[in-house]
Amino acid sequence: MLPSFTDILNISRTGMLSRTQNMDIISNNLANVNTPAFKQTRGNFQELLENTSKKVKGTLLSNTQRDLKQGDLEASDSPYHLAIYGEGYFSVTLPDNTKAYTRDGLFQLDAQRNIVNADGYRLVWNGSIPENTQAVQINEQGVVSVMVNNKWRDVGRIQLTNFTNPLGLIAVGDNLFIESEASGTPQTNNADSNGLGKIISHSRETSNVNWADQVTQMMITQRGFQLSLRTFQQTDTMLGLALAMRR
């Protein structure tokens, strides 16, 4: 079957479009190089053929995939700054009372002594911080101890949640994720058990964006765009020649 010039131009168009989309993904990774617990994302290119005729149609950016590798831990001065070393997510309550999941553990106490994240969403845990708390300690298993009247006592526990397929979680912005059909249902357990990671207080997990890798990807993507653009121009030249045949 003979391809038309429009078909050929369209193939190069898909090449340029998917590279542009991939560039957006890379830009987002680079922009979040300092966002705590941010996970870099890669775009997955896929070959595109017409469904029935199996004519070649170029490429598409079929989906994105988060890289769940652990980020480095960095020391921090607040006991409410928590990092997860290993797998799992903190759960927070959104204003509409649904749950969202995050690895960004930069929590703080609000005026009502709730543990809240940077956006003010409450951390889900079974306990409360009493009044007149002098100091707080959170151990690796998530047990929260407070000092009141110079005496330490346990006031509750922060648990972690994981999913069969954490890659299936849907990112909703603000470093938060919500469960989906693809992720499976949330399974909540004590930290440092059931394959879940440890909770490290006085720490933050840095983003796992690999700067060198992302810049290399950016160069490859830019070259891919250029190549597709060049092909587009060459095809256009051929089309011009065909049109100029009859002088």
Partner: peptide
């Protein structure tokens, strides 16, 4: 020859579009 040229350009455009598709086998 011109018709054959178009067919080849079509295959080249597809190969170039899929330079970053893992496991892609060129035409």
């Amino acid at each position: 020859a011109m018709v054959a040229g178009m067919k080849r350009q079509n295959a080249l455009a597809h190969n170039i579009a899929n330079l970053e598709t893992p496991g892609f086998r060129q035409i």
